[in-house]
């Protein structure tokens, strides 16, 4: 009961400024917008990039949602890092609030923002050749949520361990972000035929690849694909790992 209450307190605290300034939501999603506006149109001239005869939007949009999950929630730790440096986090640590709830509440807020942004992107895509399969999209958003929980919690963990050296946070975040993104096939397909072997192998090691592939199937309304299973396993694994190391980090932040 206390855990739920404390999670609610942490969540409400983080949500308040977002609700007061919903425009901030949009600033946060510049990168996905830019790719949608300035990159996606190029795909139509490249012929068939994806699976069969669907519009290139159908292929590109799910990847962009994963990119959103990666770019938005990966930065979540920056706010925590600021509070660690300023003293606001320390003050929370001297309260009887549950350490786990502090992490879970913050992560939940990131996920709510992620879902709002994802719905906004889907709404923007509706007038294009993107076809909405409601059940598939719903499943896709659930998968995205699980993925977001993991990335957000990992970002918080990184922040906790960077408190003595803030540059560590931004360094690791930058170094991890672009390889994970480029090697996931979000922008262009990475197949055995189209990519050099070493790059293909790297993309297969990248768990984000499986999430992207699962999202593409789900948003096309296809559930019975082995990729959906792999993607789910990858997302759940990231989430379990993130929350586990995150809660440990929060607890170790003090006695």
């Amino acid at each position: 009961m206390k855990l739920i209450n404390d999670t609610g307190v942490a969540f409400t605290r983080e949500m308040a400024p977002e609700l007061r300034q919903p425009a901030g939501l949009i600033f946060n999603m510049m990168l996905p917008f830019l790719f949608l506006a300035l990159f996606a149109p190029l795909l139509s001239s490249m012929g068939d990039v994806g699976q069969g005869s669907e519009s290139h939007w159908q292929w590109f949009a799910p990847g962009i949602l994963v990119l959103l999950g990666l770019s938005g929630t990966a930065g979540a730790g920056a706010a925590l890092l600021n509070e660690m440096v300023s003293g606001a986090f320390e003050r929370m640590l001297v309260t009887p609030m549950s350490r786990g709830a502090m992490l879970v509440g913050r992560t939940l807020k990131e996920v709510v923002i992620l879902l709002a942004q994802a719905l906004l992107i889907i709404a923007i895509l509706l007038p294009t050749g993107f076809h909405l399969y409601p059940l598939g999209a719903l499943a896709g958003l659930v998968l995205l949520t699980v993925f977001g929980v993991g990335i957000g919690a990992l970002s918080f963990t990184l922040a906790i361990h960077s408190k003595k050296q803030q540059t560590l946070f931004y360094g690791i975040q930058q170094v991890a972000f672009f390889p994970l993104l480029l090697l996931s096939g979000v922008l262009l397909p990475i197949t055995e035929d189209s990519a050099p072997t070493w790059l293909y192998v790297l993309s297969r090691i990248n768990p984000v690849t499986y999430v992207v592939e699962a999202e593409r199937h789900l948003f096309a309304g296809r559930f019975a694909e082995v990729s959906v299973l792999y993607g789910t396993i990858a997302a759940v694994a990231i989430a379990v790992l993130g929350v586990a190391v995150g809660i440990r980090g929060m607890r170790n932040a003090t006695v």
């Binding site: 007061r20 606001a88 320390e90």
Partner: peptide, 9 residues
């Protein structure tokens, strides 16, 4: 440090 977060009310 500052107990209150500068981004909040």
């Amino acid at each position: 440090g500052n107990s209150a977060s500068s981004a909040l009310r």
